[in-house]
């Protein structure tokens, strides 16, 4: 029983992190109807950059954020303006997957060339201990990951709901033509949407670097996991993705402590196929899903 509780608690913490990692995907899909397969590759690019900053200057990995977040924002805008926006609109969904897939391969190859294929990790002394609450032990690194994810998502939602940019972005997501008619520069907004998405990848990558060892091909596992989350949640639904993230995080956590790691990861794919058989549009909304 306490094992299950342990799994549940870990699952919730991990699910929060998943929600952050998947939020960028919802943004890209929202503003451009693009499934960005390269998102996890960018996550690990951020993880490696954090690693470099950490080992070169011996500073806390989170101090890399003031550098990586703006850099990734600019990268995101560039990816949208220079690459995605140039695709022919008639087959955008499919071509964008291939395009971003090519980007993912490019990044993986570069990481492998510069950092070699061996595992890297960042371990901070404060992150190795655990907090024990009622027989359940919660590692500090997971708690930190959850807190950072919650904080980042909170800021993201505040920006989307309160700011002028957020309003323009939401208008662009809901109805690009109408948004253009009322004078919103939708193309520039879409570019910034990509920028914000990649900025979340910078934060997510730093957190990942702290809690797990990584190597250049790590991103493939995460493509599977994150795509499972947005398919189960319903493509394009930010809230759906967050709910699915927590759900899958909990399922993974429970299976991890009761069965083994292989089955824990397998759960993501099982859920994808079950979702497709039962409700192809996803379980939490996203009525657009099966068209894209």
């Amino acid at each position: 029983m306490s094992l299950i509780l342990q799994g549940l608690a870990l699952g919730v913490l991990t699910g929060g992190l998943y929600a952050l990692l998947a939020s960028g995907l919802s943004l890209y899909f929202g503003v451009m109807r693009v499934v960005m397969v390269a998102h996890p590759a960018f996550l690990f690019l951020a993880a490696y950059l954090t690693y470099t900053v950490h080992t070169a200057f011996g500073v806390d990995p989170f101090l890399a954020l003031p550098v990586t977040v703006p850099v990734f924002f600019v990268l995101g805008v560039a990816v949208q303006r220079l690459l995605v926006a140039r695709l022919a609109p008639d087959n955008l969904a499919m071509m964008s997957v291939l395009l971003t897939f090519g980007l993912a391969l490019t990044i993986e190859g570069l990481l492998g060339t510069f950092y070699t294929g061996s595992y890297r990790s960042i371990s901070m002394e404060y992150a190795t201990r655990s907090l024990t609450v009622g027989g359940v032990s919660l590692p500090y690194d997971r708690i930190i990951a959850f807190a950072v994810a919650a904080l980042t998502l909170g800021v993201l939602f505040a920006v989307l709901v309160k700011s002028r940019f957020g309003r323009a972005l939401r208008a662009t997501i809901q109805h690009p033509e109408a948004a253009r008619l009322v004078g919103i520069p939708t193309e520039r907004v879409a570019g910034y949407g990509f920028g914000v998405g990649l900025a979340t990848a910078a934060v997510g990558g730093t957190v990942l670097a702290l809690i797990t060892p990584f190597f250049p091909a790590s991103h493939w596992v995460w493509i599977g996991k994150l795509m499972a989350i947005i398919v189960v949640g319903g493509l394009g639904s930010v809230v759906g993705a967050a709910l699915a993230a927590v759900l899958l995080g909990v399922v993974e956590g429970v299976v991890l402590v009761t069965v083994d790691a292989t089955w824990a990861t397998m759960m993501f794919y099982v859920f994808v196929f079950l979702t497709l058989l039962a409700r192809p549009q996803g379980f939490f909304g996203g009525r657009l899903a099966h068209r894209f």
């Binding site: 693009v34 499934v35 397969v37 969904a93 499919m94 964008s96 997957v97 493939w220 596992v221 493509i223 599977g224 795509m227 499972a228 398919v231 493509l235 397998m266 993501f268 794919y269 994808v272 196929f273 497709l276 058989l277 192809p280 899903a289 099966h290 068209r291 894209f292």
Partner: peptide, 20 residues
């Protein structure tokens, strides 16, 4: 199961298949 979804979703499913 896979061809129930189109476009990008199908690509995702195919990636999931090979990882699985």
């Amino acid at each position: 199961a896979a061809v129930r979804v189109r476009g990008a979703s199908f690509v995702i499913v195919s990636i999931a298949l090979v990882s699985m």
